[in-house]
């Protein structure tokens, strides 16, 4: 395996940013902490293939600088409970045992008690973080059938290890998050996901799952050529159309069908599960969940409500 160059960079400008979102699609108002830019896992579908110009990895290690930015963002927010994460431009855990980047963030959010910090990953190694975990850190894993992990997420941890890590985090008293993103429509995907959801509900306490995200495969035009050049059969199944934001997505009525299947399977397992759609249109929200989520603000309010329900007055 070719290991990319790791460059430690001097932190300048904004490291803490708003999730870029996308036009005409509802965004959850997530805050990204781009402490690492680039990823060693190199999943075949990853949007970073199209976004970052170099395969080198940049790491910001100026912890006080980053924490002061987070602090400013939290202080200036008067209305909502903010959610931060390091998994936007990288995987939160893939390099963490080596560089220990999450620990100061976990400790900061634990002391602050005003916002949540999400560690989002496909790399199931949380042992080094166990002594520091607190109620304000959410351990999340992106989950997919093992068939997809084998074919498209070759350098990541196998499914059973991700599930084991989630269980471990729950046992340590953390809330966990589950991300079905990207959901890939290949031949027979429905059955594989049904088994996967069965496994999840058997192994985890769904009452301690803070959120579940659903997002079907979507990608900018640049990536279409990448998928073609690398002959990604799984990724190119289905019918793709160009959305209003210019990204390729599965045709809408197919998305609705698949998201409804996930929504109903998950709700059958735990009726109070908080399920949100990542970057979907208002009418898709309505068709899938029955909820009238009119805009980003409405979704952020749903998150606030969910967090308040679970945390009560402790946040």
């Amino acid at each position: 395996m070719n290991f990319p160059n790791i460059n430690f960079v001097t932190s300048q400008g904004n490291i803490v940013r708003d999730c870029p979102g996308t036009r005409h699609h509802i965004c959850c108002g997530y805050k990204t902490i781009d402490i690492i830019e680039g990823c060693i896992l190199s999943c075949s579908y990853c949007i970073l293939h199209g976004y970052l110009n170099s395969s080198d990895i940049k790491i910001h290690r100026d912890v006080p600088y980053i924490l002061s930015q987070i602090d400013d963002v939290i202080t200036s927010e008067k209305k909502h409970i903010l959610r931060f994460g390091t998994g936007e431009l990288s995987d939160s855990l893939a390099l963490d045992r080596r560089y220990r980047l999450n620990r100061p963030l976990i400790e900061y959010f634990g002391n602050k008690k005003k916002a949540l910090f999400e560690i989002k990953s496909k790399w199931a190694d949380i042992n080094h973080l166990m002594p520091y975990l607190n109620h304000y850190t959410v351990i999340s894993f992106s989950l997919a059938p093992q068939k997809i992990i084998d074919a498209e997420e070759k350098r990541t941890s196998p499914l059973y290890k991700r599930l084991k890590a989630l269980k471990k985090a729950q046992d340590a008293g953390c809330f966990v998050g589950i991300h079905f993103d990207p959901i890939i429509m290949y031949d027979g995907f429905e059955k594989d996901y049904i088994y996967l959801i069965d496994d999840i509900s058997r192994l985890l306490d769904l009452k301690k799952v803070i959120w579940v995200s659903l997002g079907l495969l979507r990608f900018p035009p640049k990536l279409l050529n990448y998928y073609i050049d690398t002959a990604r059969k799984n990724l190119l199944q289905g019918e793709f159309i160009r959305g209003e934001d210019g990204k390729y997505r599965y045709i809408k009525n197919e998305r609705i069908k698949v998201l409804r299947m996930f929504y109903s399977l998950l709700k059958k397992k735990e009726k109070n599960l908080f399920i949100y759609l990542c970057m979907e249109r208002q009418d898709v929200w309505k068709e899938v969940t029955g909820m009238d989520v009119k805009n980003n603000e409405a979704l952020v309010e749903l998150f606030d409500k969910r967090i308040k329900t679970l945390y009560g007055g402790s946040i």
Binding site: I241, R242, G243, E244, R249, I251, K252, N253
Partner: peptide, 13 residues
């Protein structure tokens, strides 16, 4: 003198 225009990709609401 009348037309109903629909998004060719059936994406818009």
């Amino acid at each position: 003198t009348m037309d109903i225009k629909v998004d060719p990709f059936f994406e818009k609401e």
